[in-house]
Design a protein around this nucleic acid. Structure first.
Lengths: 247, 247
DNA sequence: CCAAAACAGGTTGTCTGACAACCTGTTTAC
DNA sequence: GTAAACAGGTTGTCAGACAACCTGTTTTGG
């Protein structure tokens, strides 16, 4: 497969001025130079200081406002909002630079995914259950073929399996937040070294971990689903952390 | 208190053109007129169609790009990304219009908060525990004074209590996502009718629910913390749903 | 004829300048 | 003394221009 997704994706990103300005301002806020309630310098002033056009500054501020970091009022200025007013949750790629942060992110994923599974156990439809079973079957086959043969396919199927489980919770917010976290983990970890790490996720012992989740879903046992999912992801995280190449 | 937060806050928002354009484009994507991979009309074309300047369209597209909904390349155009590539999780105020959506949001909050509590049980420091205890004490006092006297204070203290618990997980991602969800729920529900609903959250029986969470944290029992937190928020959601004024 | 280089048209990214809408504090008018 | 008008500053929007870049076509050199 010459164009496997996530493999030769865009890595360089031609820096865009507004993004850089936004990062710069954000840093000033998080660094404490700008406290909640403070007024930002005027757009003209910022433009002059950064050496860019006002349109660039405007776009940058527009991004911050979008995330609820600042609030701007015509004729007055832009103000740093209260820190607890943020209206979005996003994961910066910088999170994947430090080992501790990756572990924390995996913790979050584990917890949220477990919650989704628990919900899915009771909220799932028979249709959804059937599709989940089919994906498990497909994953089992890829697993049997071994890491050398079907590494990509197994990883992808597993992703799809848990995505379907999450969606079976029939709670779109759960689905969104899990998908978002998962995407970020995949995008950043996969390109780094997940390829190798995925190889250690093969074998019947590990398939049993997945099996336990499915059994709980079949039994519509929310508690069991929660526990099984948590166990599965905690163990995967442990195995990842134990790897020598996990910087 | 003449300027209680969240009471007489900004309600009207002078419509900003870029936001409206962004919403419009988003609607086109979610409505299916624009499928993943499709190219958006050019900025000039969009500007003409919407009857606005190109800077406005640019700002709108910049927002969508920020959320990973589109990806634009200089000299080529802007493209709708794969739906699973979204890089942020945000809650639109529209979520609070339908009863079912509010329930789903509370489900999500319950699950994530429970995960944070479980983590906090083992990750907390003694310092953090002490501060949590102090907040509980403060809340108990407000509770004793009754809804007529200390409604605002009790609600705020409770919020602060669980925020501190979440932060005691010492996982900033958990803290961020919980704070974000919580903020949205508060901002939207409170102004609507949470004021009244909060009154039914008084009394020793309900304080016991909180007490159970604290006991688990003291015992450093992650499972108990998870269960107690879940129980507490599920019950609160149930009581809310049972209210007559819950449209 | 073929491959590489130059070209042309279109698109996004950035810059500049202008004006409208709006806010705040001061001054003026009644 | 109070209300209205004014002045200055700031954000929001508009219009036009050019740079950087991409893609497909044409031209050129062999």
């Amino acid at each position: 497969m010459p164009d496997a997704p996530g493999l030769f994706d865009r890595i360089d990103r031609p820096r865009r001025l507004p993004d850089e300005v936004a990062v710069s301002i954000t840093a000033a806020i998080e660094g404490g130079q700008l406290a909640p309630g403070d007024r930002l310098p005027t757009e003209a002033e910022l433009a002059k200081r950064f050496g860019v056009a006002r349109t660039v500054v405007r776009e940058a501020i527009s991004l911050l406002r979008y995330d609820g970091i600042v609030d701007s009022r015509r004729g007055v200025g832009a103000f740093v909002t209260d820190a607890s007013q943020r209206s979005s949750f996003r994961i910066s790629p910088a999170c994947f630079e430090k080992r501790k942060q990756i572990v924390q992110l995996l913790q979050l994923r584990t917890g949220v995914q477990a919650g989704a599974s628990a919900l899915a156990a009771t909220a799932r439809t028979e249709d959804q259950m059937a599709r989940i079973d089919a994906l498990y079957q497909q994953m089992a086959e890829a697993d049997a073929r071994g890491p050398a043969e079907a590494l990509e396919e197994r990883v992808d199927t597993e992703l799809l399996l848990y995505r379907h489980i999450t969606e079976a919770s029939n709670n779109p917010y759960y689905a969104e937040v899990v998908a978002m976290i998962e995407t970020n983990i995949q995008n950043n970890l996969r390109s780094a070294f997940l390829k190798n790490a995925a190889a250690s996720e093969f074998g019947p012992a590990i398939m049993d971990e997945h099996r336990a989740v499915l059994d709980a879903l079949h039994a519509q046992d929310a508690e069991a689903a929660r526990t099984a999912t948590r166990t599965r992801f905690e163990r995967a995280a442990d195995r990842l952390a134990a790897r020598a190449d996990f910087a």
